[in-house]
């Protein structure tokens, strides 16, 4: 029993949301709302409400990056200053806190930004190998819904999509 992936293309969000609503209402078997992957040319906030709460964990990493940055900044700067052979003091202490705060602040942002971006790339699955199930229309104006189903339900789901204003349906074997 092999599994198939289906991509159905819709004209606009309204059509796509109708389909989602119908899937939620169990009008077609073999597809759960959690399996739905919705592709769109723009970001639509309603997608989240329609598909249910899905977690976004980037902020935790950002926080971790920021905390690391500021701690690292403090220890790095003060230990470099303390171990420096000569002390360019100009009447100032060896470890001048106010000036170090400036750099700690910069390091906070630096590490926070980089962790955010790196985590974004990983968490959103960018740069990973993907299936070929894709339509170029997705970057123009059409909305795609991807579902993964068993072979047995292939036809029924296809029909379901067709009946619900799908413009085009593509499929691939997993």
């Amino acid at each position: 029993m092999s599994r198939h992936r289906l991509l159905a293309m819709f004209k606009d969000f309204d059509d796509a949301f109708d389909v989602v609503d119908k899937i939620k209402a169990k009008e077609v078997s073999g597809v759960e709302v959690d399996d739905i992957n919705m592709m769109s040319p723009i970001e639509h906030p309603e997608v989240d409400t329609k598909l249910g709460k899905r977690p976004v964990n980037i902020a935790y990493f950002t926080l971790a990056g920021a905390i690391f940055g500021v701690t690292f900044g403090f220890f790095f700067l003060s230990s470099a200053q303390a171990s420096f052979l000569v002390q360019p003091q100009g009447g100032k202490p060896v470890v001048p806190l106010p000036t170090n705060f400036v750099l700690m602040y910069e390091m906070l942002i630096f590490f926070a930004v980089w962790t955010t971006v790196i985590c974004f790339i990983f968490l959103s699955g960018l740069g990973q190998k993907r299936g070929t199930l894709y339509s170029e229309k997705l970057t123009v104006d059409e909305i795609g819904i991807v579902v993964e189903i068993d072979e047995s339900e292939l036809d029924s789901v296809k029909n379901f999509f067709k009946n619900n204003k799908a413009l085009e349906i593509r499929e691939e074997k997993v």
Partner: peptide, 15 residues
């Protein structure tokens, strides 16, 4: 490899 799926958009928005 951007495909515009909902996971990407979600993370994208937050990021």
């Amino acid at each position: 490899g951007w495909r515009g799926d909902d996971r990407q958009w979600r993370n994208f928005r937050r990021t």
